[in-house]
Design a protein around this nucleic acid. Sequence first.
DNA 1: GCCGAATGTTGACGTTGTAAACATCTAATT
DNA 2: AATTAGATGTTTACAACGTCAACATTCGGC
Lengths: 210, 210
Amino acid sequence: MGATDPETRYHHGDLRQSLIDAALKLIAEKQDAKTLSLREVARRVGVSHAAPYRHFADKEALLAAVAEEGFHILTRHLQESMKPLEDDPLGQLQASGVAYVKFAIAHPSHYRVMFSALQPNNPNYPALNAAGDEAFAVMVGAIAHTQTLGLVKPGDPRQLARITWSLVHGLAMLLIEGQLPLTDSEVVTTLAQQAAAALVYGLRQDIQGN
Amino acid sequence: MGATDPETRYHHGDLRQSLIDAALKLIAEKQDAKTLSLREVARRVGVSHAAPYRHFADKEALLAAVAEEGFHILTRHLQESMKPLEDDPLGQLQASGVAYVKFAIAHPSHYRVMFSALQPNNPNYPALNAAGDEAFAVMVGAIAHTQTLGLVKPGDPRQLARITWSLVHGLAMLLIEGQLPLTDSEVVTTLAQQAAAALVYGLRQDIQGN
DNA sequence: GCCGAATGTTGACGTTGTAAACATCTAATT
DNA sequence: AATTAGATGTTTACAACGTCAACATTCGGC
């Protein structure tokens, strides 16, 4: 029947994306990604408990899709944070670090799914891996840029990016897990800026050690 | 009956610790902490599936005990890494960072339970929180020590410790999650040393910014 | 208009976490 | 040494879950 009401149609129309959205909302409502129930997601969307299996091989595949979407959003945030500072590469590097942490704090559940719900480099999810690489590439590019201007010591930019990533990722994780006091957003920004500044100074090329 | 064979006794004798050990082994065998089944732990220990409830309120409480044990081990590792460098506080700081990452790599499953299996600061697990604080205190102490000698810029040592912790925690997480290439242990140590060195330089007090 | 493929539903199975009722052992008091 | 209360372990039961197989409905191309 041609009823336009999506609630009563046999075919949903865009079930795949609806499942991803519902999963994300449910994870955000509870604080926990691992207690997410596939049946509850289906219920929320108004579909039978087995319907998701037409779009995802299993529960993990749905989480992978959620994570992939998160990496795309993160990439966009990083890029936008760097835009207004195109004449200040070191500032760009620091700004992207702050933007990274801010993304994690703004979307903690999404961030958790991205990093602690499933192990990476899983060949079953090439799109997820590509999305993660894409975000990482933004950092590598920012560092490489500072290097060409002699602002940061030479060396494989990916190696330096790994260190940078470790710092912001660790900060983000500890913050959203509540291991660090997260009072107001100003304090967080300050902490992120301090951390980024410390690392940027440590990576300068005019220092003697290493 | 007084049979000395622990296998056939009605009372296990030390079931609580046996459950913790078995849980840890099972988590290590699979790579996954969240697929751990309480019933499987009980099976492994040779006890009925409801027996664990005499020692732990629920599955989460068992994981909390596993995590607590991990923090005690981590604290010991950190302290021992610093011992041979008592006349070199900056070296101690760097060494403890490397030791931190090495612990995580040596016991990835344990580390995962410690940080991503349950949310911290949960008042239900005061012993777990205390164990975490204990490990954090080692870092704070190391930083405070460098500050009293004027090797690191002044300021709340806990704030600087948070930044340091973020770096090592992020590095550890990315390494054990496979997000960073973990070829051999030398490469890892080098990366950890570079990261620690960069941060230590960034935290020096003779730099101008921040 | 027909028909195969895509999409959704129903029912089933084994596993899990957890509670309740029951059984057995340990230890302290007498 | 016998009793007995509490600690510890077992059995049974239930609802929820992930997933599969069989079936129903709808869509798109011929």
